[in-house]
């Protein structure tokens, strides 16, 4: 294989990987972004992701309609989100601890109810082929895209706009930045946070549906392997900006594809290092981003404050 063809293979694999792998990261990080903008941390989204994946697979298999599965995943996430918000609205309750408890609850529930669905094959979500005209099988494969990806991207830009330009966006940010100001306005902080956490759960659930119904497209207990937790970290890296969440998710996806792609073209040395690329990248960028204090300024001021 010539050098150019090798390079093209790796490049196409990274583009394809970015598109294929980024969607669950994108949905979970958008969900967490909405939640944290309202001043609450939900670490339980890993559990929401797994429960969403299971619910989607179960409903898609039982009804034969994968889109109903997506809806079910969203609803499962919504319920966990409401649980989180309700528990956290009690006095002197720590949202980080509740998040960890709900993470275990979500995964445990998913494993319990998901047992009979490891074997059967549920219908898969359809995809849109954008690269058919190019005549390159690899690029065509990389550009075979699931509609959820487009929805996620549109949502990222919409949320960014809505945070800045709508009344609801303002109320949300106010609940996250100053409880006192919200109260002065006569806005129920708990109500705003309930809505935000529920919406965040809904989005994360849909991220799970992407995992089980599209890519890799099968339900088993190792499906998420920590992606929900990584997506939560990604929000800090994206400085609570939905648009940046999208870029960060793409970067994570591409970095994750690097390890397998290099090995497939015969660059075999140090694959443990390349497999760790997404994490190394995150560390480096976090250090870089932390130095100029922008991340600290972008952080909602009520985050992590306990009353």
């Amino acid at each position: 294989m010539s050098d150019i063809a090798t390079l093209a293979t790796v490049l196409f694999a990274m583009i394809g990987g970015a598109i294929r792998v980024s969607t669950p990261f994108l949905f979970v990080s958008l969900g967490e972004c909405v939640t944290e903008k309202a001043g609450r941390i939900n670490l339980g989204l890993e559990g929401t992701l797994v429960l969403g994946a299971m619910a989607a697979y179960m409903v898609a298999y039982e009804t034969g309609d994968p889109w109903l599965g997506v809806l079910a995943a969203g609803c499962a996430g919504l319920i966990l989100g409401v649980m989180h918000a309700t528990l956290c609205s009690l006095p002197r309750v720590n949202d980080v601890a509740i998040g960890i408890a709900l993470m275990s609850f979500g995964t445990g529930l998913a494993f319990f109810f998901g047992k009979p669905y490891i074997q059967p094959q549920a219908p898969r979500l359809p995809s849109v082929e954008l690269g058919g005209w190019i005549g390159n099988a690899q690029l065509a494969e990389a550009l075979t895209i699931n509609p959820l990806f487009f929805i996620g991207v549109a949502l990222a830009f919409f949320l960014r706009w809505a945070f800045d330009n709508t009344r609801y966006g303002l109320l949300l940010r106010m609940a996250g930045d100053s409880v006192a100001a919200s109260r002065a306005m006569g806005v129920s902080v708990d109500g705003v946070r309930l809505a935000a956490t529920a919406a965040g759960g809904f989005l994360s659930g849909i991220g799970g549906a992407f995992l089980s119904l599209y890519y890799p497209g099968s339900w088993n207990e190792a499906l998420s392997s920590g992606q929900g937790l990584m997506a939560v970290a990604l929000v800090i890296f994206a400085r609570w900006d939905p648009q940046r969440c999208f870029y960060a998710a793409m970067l994570f996806g591409a970095a994750g594809a690097l390890g397998p792609a290099l090995q497939s073209v015969g660059i075999v040395k140090g694959y443990y290092f390349f497999n760790a690329a997404p994490y190394i990248l995150t560390l480096l960028i976090m250090i870089g981003a932390g130095r100029d204090g922008k991340a600290a300024r972008a952080m909602p001021s009520e985050l992590g404050v306990q009353r």
Binding site: A13, V21, Y215, P216, G217, L223, S225, G256
Partner: peptide
């Protein structure tokens, strides 16, 4: 699972 799928595609 995700990395296995990526590896298969690669």
């Amino acid at each position: 699972p995700v990395r296995e799928a990526e590896a298969t595609n690669a």
